[in-house]
């Protein structure tokens, strides 16, 4: 999404803090302190009311004595620098690489991921743990739901491991497009990508549900996942720290599911539950 940036020049300390609080009330969602006395405020263009903001800033500028400038920041891939030079990752028989890396002839599964500002390159602990969990599973013939798919990496691996089809869902536009691109790049035609959330999960039951998101979204959506899972199916969750495992486990087991395996890496967790 396109953003509006407002640069404020000549304000620091308590005055800057008070102005920040006021701008936050007007819908500005984040702030960057450039150097002493200069900071910038950011708001998505769809929430920007130019008159309301100008009126507020003009009044404040008169009282506090600062100057300001409003500009547009067009949408773009801000992660391009990292993505242009990332290192490949090996997890078990999976070799995850960018299009500019040579394949590893010894790897059982060669996976090409070009992330385009989407999450899921196997560098983060949660993706790493999820892939390790997937490599333990016999997916042959199963149907899989990958919710919060990001780059599509987990769904693509499930297909490479024999899953019959995967429904991959993400509410982010970049991820929705990127998961489709990566599925095509890795020749896995069985992947259906949907832009949406748990409310958009198609009817029918899945043998496996994969969700690497965060604690709050998981706690909110676990009942939906439970409903979409076959009896005997597995729910594999990640995206949270060890401290949050108890509250997640409590909620899932209260629905009659059993914890199967759990693994941690640098305090991050991936946990598998079975529906009896």
């Amino acid at each position: 999404m396109e953003y509006i940036e407002v640069n404020i020049n000549g304000l620091s300390g308590e005055d800057a803090e008070i102005l920040t609080a006021g701008m936050s009330e007007l819908g500005f969602e984040s702030f960057l302190e450039e150097t002493a006395g200069i900071f910038s405020a950011y708001i998505p263009i769809d929430f920007f009311d130019v008159r309301k903001v100008s009126d507020f800033l003009d009044e404040q500028a008169m009282n506090l004595g600062f100057s300001y400038k409003i500009g547009n920041i067009p949408e773009q891939n801000w992660n391009a620098a990292w993505e242009s030079a990332y290192q490949p990752v090996k997890i078990g028989k999976c070799f995850i690489r960018a299009p500019f890396h040579e394949p590893d002839p010894a790897a059982g599964i060669d996976l090409v991921i070009e992330p385009k500002m989407s999450f899921g390159t196997a560098h983060h602990e949660t993706t790493h743990l999820m892939i390790k969990a997937l490599l333990q599973i016999r997916f042959e013939g199963s149907s899989v739901l990958d919710i919060g798919t990001g780059t599509g990496i987990l769904g693509i691996i499930a297909l490479k491991l024999g899953a019959k089809h995967v429904v991959a869902i993400d509410n982010d536009e970049w991820s929705f497009l990127n998961a489709k691109e990566n599925a095509a790049r890795n020749n896995v035609p069985g992947m259906i990508v949907i832009k949406g959330s748990a409310a958009d999960i198609p009817s029918g039951k899945f043998g496996y549900i994969l969700a690497n998101i965060n604690r709050n979204v998981l706690l909110h959506d676990i009942p939906v996942y439970h409903n979409s899972l076959e009896n005997g199916g597995s729910l594999i969750l990640s995206g949270f720290y060890e401290d949050d495992l108890d509250v997640i486990r409590e909620m899932v087991t209260a629905m009659g599911m059993m914890q199967d395996r759990v693994e941690t890496l640098n305090h991050w967790v991936a946990v598998t539950f079975k529906k009896c």
């Binding site: 953003y3 950011y42 998505p44 801000w78 992660n79 992330p115 560098h123 965060n214 604690r215």
Partner: peptide
Amino acid sequence: SPPVGPALGAKGVNIMEFCKQFNA
């Protein structure tokens, strides 16, 4: 999105990793 994207992206940091950690 801005400011996280441009501020960290320009330094070659993996923005997605920062967001996951910060949000958790």
